[in-house]
Design a protein around this nucleic acid. Structure first.
Length: 494
RNA sequence: GGCGCCGUAGCCAAGUGGUAAGGCAGAGGCCUGCAAAGCCUUUAUUCCCCGGUUCGAAUCCGGGCGGCGCCUCCA
């Protein structure tokens, strides 16, 4: 009955319990903004969005923050090659990534902190770590976190602190580290950093913040010292999030995160997505190819977030068809008029009428109630989105069957089905996204309506050749007709 | 090498001890002038393989085979 989530730290599915309900402080690791985000990034973003929406739907007051990394090796290298300032270089990608996210129906975070906007806070955080004996500066002006001074290091990853000495190489510029496992909090500026404007003054000289530090500092600055949930891709468990815990708890002495949620990587056409295989897909590309955002959204949420997901072109087509089924269902519910909606008593006795009027006894109301509960149970079970989809489609099938069979469905019963569908879609966000781009302007619509009228006449005259020609003409413009006893409906398809 | 995940129909994907959800695709039917949409029936006697535990296993245990992830500032 309540949300259960897998927690990476305890390696178990646990009841979700925020520190200060109904507030939920939700932080997610966003992308490094040196290029368009790929499809794997968006799987993570969509899982963030699913949790964000589901918590809100469940009555929580969610404060959602997602960072954007705009200063690190990759942004600096790319900016350098482009001979631009790092902020100037990254800004367009930031804009595009967030625009594409909106296109996919991802609800905005309250704020998207940029690393470059928090450098003074990061500097003071390092000073506090130094005061606590958890950080030390070396000769070149870099500062490292001293893992040896933080005994619980390695808990998130499940490493034995004593023998956890992953075969880290000691890079040339890191030979002064006291322990190979120590990680950089502050990196002394190199010429390239200065060239792209990625260097700041600090007590240790010119330099830039280490990557891990930004999430500790920005999440705490925006949400407070203890986050209810911190999300990220599975690759971030170690070392990124391990280091965040060390940096954060090292200073605050408080639990940094109550619930760690990590999203599994996906594969593309059965293969790992990687630059070397050349199979990296960006959402930006898919959208430019004209693929439907709702289909992308459906496929990326098609497997539970801790399972590997196989992203394929065929799957995208299947998802588009599934989304169309939902659109058709929504349209059918919208167009169906209940018996009390047209003022017809239709021979039902008073008691039945009363029951139906409040929706309590209607078959659709019952199906709606079952669907919402099944949906809730699926997502409560560690965000099982695949099962949540199943609950929705069972509802679609049963209601369609009911509408086919019944002739006296009441308006209130219909309304309960409509509101259940709308409610479920507040979480899944498929219909709201799918409707985008399907609007038609007035001229187009009047042209459609006039052709339908002409076809109606042709059919009445049994001139089916003409009628079919009209239907084909409309189909070429993406308009599909559906004849029914109530007349001809049209819809725009994707 | 260390740690971890996974292998279910043509494709995608739930189910993790009680007799196989859902989507897409395919076949047949109803409806239709024909379609579309929808509905019905059908498509895995079986869940990578081999053993074991159990009244009973896709689900637990052992062993194989296969795929994948992290251990490299990649979501």
């Amino acid at each position: 009955m309540a949300l259960k989530l897998y927690d990476t730290l305890t390696r178990s599915v646990r009841d979700f319990q925020p520190a200060d309900p109904p507030v939920v402080r939700l932080y997610a690791c966003g992308p490094t903004v040196y290029d368009h985000a790929h499809i794997g990034n968006y799987r993570a973003f969509l899982v963030y969005d699913l949790l964000h929406r589901y918590l809100t739907w469940s009555g929580y007051d969610v404060d959602f923050v997602m960072n954007l990394t705009d200063v690190d090796d990759k942004t600096i290298d790319s900016a350098s090659q482009a001979e631009k300032d790092v902020r100037e270089y990254t800004a367009p990608f930031t804009k595009d990534i967030l625009a594409d996210a909106r296109t996919l129906g991802i609800l905005p975070a309250r704020v998207y902190p940029l690393a470059t906007g928090y450098v003074p806070q990061m500097v003071s955080w390092i000073e506090r770590l130094e005061e606590k004996g958890l950080a030390y500066a070396v000769e070149d002006g870099s500062v490292y976190f001293s893992i040896g001074a933080f005994p619980s290091y390695g808990r998130l990853k499940g490493l034995d602190p004593e023998c956890a000495r992953p075969g880290a190489r000691v890079a040339d510029d890191e030979y002064e580290k006291e322990d190979v496992r120590d990680f950089a909090l502050w990196k002394a500026a190199k010429p390239v950093d200065e060239a792209v404007g990625a260097a700041w003054d600090s007590p240790w000289g010119r330099g830039r913040p280490g990557w891990h530090l930004e999430c500790s500092v920005m999440s705490i600055a925006e949400l407070g010292e203890t986050l209810d949930i911190h999300m990220g891709g599975e690759d971030l468990v170690f070392p990124h999030h391990e280091n965040e815990i060390a940096q954060s708890e090292g200073v605050t002495g408080k639990p940094f995160v109550l619930h760690w949620v990590h999203v599994k990587h996906l594969v593309v056409e059965g293969e790992k997505m990687s630059k070397s295989l050349g199979n990296t897909i960006t959402v930006h590309q898919l959208l430019e190819e004209g693929l439907r955002p709702a289909a992308i959204r459906h496929q990326l949420l098609g497997a539970q977030y801790r399972k590997e997901l196989n992203f394929t072109r065929d799957g995208l087509a299947a998802s588009a068809a599934a989304v169309q089924r939902l659109l058709d269902f929504e349209a059918r519910l919208a167009e169906t008029v209940g018996v009390d909606g047209v003022g017809s008593a239709s021979g039902v006795d008073g008691r039945d009428n009363a029951d139906r009027a409040n929706g309590a006894g209607g078959p659709l109301a019952r199906l709606a109630g079952e669907a919402v509960e099944a949906f809730r149970a699926a997502l409560d079970d560690d965000l099982n989105s695949a099962e949540a989809f199943a609950a929705l489609f069972v509802f679609v099938n049963r209601v369609n069957g009911e509408l086919d069979a019944a002739s006296d469905v009441t308006e209130s019963d219909l309304e309960s089905a409509r509101s259940a569908l709308a409610s479920i879609d507040e979480v899944l966000g498929l219909l709201s996204v799918a409707r985008q781009g399907l609007e038609v302007d007035d001229d187009f619509e009047s042209w459609i309506v006039s052709l339908i009228a002409e076809r109606k006449k042709a059919r009445a005259d049994r001139d089916f050749a003409r009628a079919d020609a009209i239907r084909d003409e409309l189909a070429e413009r993406g308009i599909v007709l559906e004849d029914s006893s109530g007349g001809t409906r049209w819809k725009r398809i994707q």
